[in-house]
């Protein structure tokens, strides 16, 4: 099955487009706590729409954490409605692989969204990644993987990354709010503890292309010298 890593932080797997960790409603949750937060939902919608139009996949898979709040709230529901409304011109199938944040989302079935705990596509098993599952080859989200890059003059920038191995693929968080977890320092998902992280290839999506930084272990070693 064809496997293509897209600069929009999405993965093309055969005729399915896979994204993870959208955390819709994050802004509402922050506003509820009294903060002044601009809404970025429009960007999320237009970014996905653009890829859908270009790649024309038969299926859109959201690999967990479609939404943010653990406590369902009507404002969040309104945001989710706006999100799916924004995708209404897409006529393919939409599947949500349930993540740990996706509580109380049963109602989106009415919008034509299928909800599953895991999904097998070709030889790959798609799960969100917050708990271990039986299987051979996985595609997960949950980790919000990022790597901090350095250069010889002391610059240091953290970038979201794909991690790619023979038996494990980790997607970067799609949400523009994601802080990014530096995987050279600490890992969150139990999957990453199970597999040898140092052998995973680091793919950095930037505008218009994806850069291959090679294996994580070697990358870390080289940057230590800087």
């Amino acid at each position: 099955m064809k496997l293509e890593f897209l600069p929009e932080k999405a993965l093309l797997l055969g005729d399915s487009l896979v994204v993870a960790d959208l955390h819709i409603g994050f802004e509402e949750a922050m506003v509820r706590e009294g903060n002044y937060v601009p809404k970025l939902l429009d960007r999320v919608v237009s970014s996905i729409s653009k890829v859908l139009k270009r790649e024309r996949p038969r299926r859109l898979v959201i690999n967990g954490d479609l939404k943010h709040s653990f406590v369902p709230a009507w404002r969040e529901r309104r945001e989710l409605e706006a999100f799916f409304d924004g995708l209404s011109s897409y006529l393919g199938e939409i599947v949500l692989v349930r993540g740990n944040h996706d509580v109380g989302v049963g109602w989106i079935r009415k919008l034509g969204v299928e909800i599953v705990d895991s999904l097998e596509l070709g030889r790959w098993k798609l799960v969100h990644g917050h708990r271990l599952e039986e299987g051979e080859r996985f595609i997960i989200g949950h980790e919000h993987p990022a790597v901090r890059l350095r250069d010889e003059v002391g610059a240091s920038v953290k970038v979201p990354v794909f991690l790619r191995g023979e038996r494990l693929i980790v997607l970067p968080a799609f949400s523009p709010w994601a802080y990014g977890n530096d995987v050279t320092r600490e890992i969150v998902s139990p999957f990453l503890r199970k597999f040898d992280v140092s052998k995973l290839r680091v793919l950095v999506p930037i505008e218009g292309e994806v850069l291959d930084f090679g294996e994580l272990g070697r990358l870390t070693r080289v940057m230590r010298g800087l």
Binding site: V157, L219, V222
Partner: peptide, 25 residues
């Protein structure tokens, strides 16, 4: 550090640089 204004170009530059070092290693 004052970073390059163009973030995309900056990451590409980091990429070239780091790949050179990996190759050299």
């Amino acid at each position: 550090v004052v970073l390059m204004e163009d973030r995309r170009e900056m990451i590409k530059r980091l990429h070239r640089r780091i790949m050179e070092m990996i190759a050299g290693e």
